[in-house]
């Protein structure tokens, strides 16, 4: 084989660079993010409920994996068909990201962003939709 030295060196360098993310991070798993539910509105709902728990529009597991599907459907319903409300758990809610979701989950940075950053997804919702302002003194 010609140029053995160069080829082997090249291969070693390639291998080191290629596997960089694996050995650099070691075997450390980044802990799964915990979206914060500590907002004034959710605390208020918790205090008002009998057993101290609050359910979102749908069960938590469903919301975790399918919230984007709900938002997508809301968008179609609201923009295309001018349907404004939908009922969940027997209550009517406006199908609106800022009026319904963000009313309780007013902490975008500690709720939405935590998981989105972890999963490395950058939804462009907030390019247009305005995130709620922080309450005074927060």
């Amino acid at each position: 084989m010609y140029n053995t030295g160069k080829i082997i060196t090249g291969l070693v360098i390639f291998f080191v660079v290629f596997t960089f993310p694996f050995w650099f991070n070691g075997a450390k798993a980044v802990p799964a993010p915990k979206p914060s539910l500590d907002t004034p509105k959710i605390n208020e709902l918790k205090a008002a409920s009998e057993d101290g728990t609050v359910t979102c529009l749908m069960p938590t597991e469903y919301m975790k994996s399918e919230h984007m599907v709900i938002l997508n459907e809301w968008r179609t319903a609201d923009v295309r068909r001018a349907d404004y409300t939908a009922s969940y758990n027997g209550e009517l809610y406006p199908m609106s990201l800022s009026k319904t979701c963000m009313e309780c989950h007013s902490n975008k940075a500690d709720f939405c962003d935590r998981c989105h950053n972890y999963a490395s997804v950058t939804p462009y919702c907030w390019n247009c939709h305005v995130e709620p302002k922080k309450a005074e003194g927060e």
């Binding site: 599907v69 349907d83 404004y84 939908a86």
Partner: peptide
Amino acid sequence: VLPTPKSAAPDAAA
């Protein structure tokens, strides 16, 4: 299959 909210409707005041 999208979970279309079957209850989706215009606001009563619309």
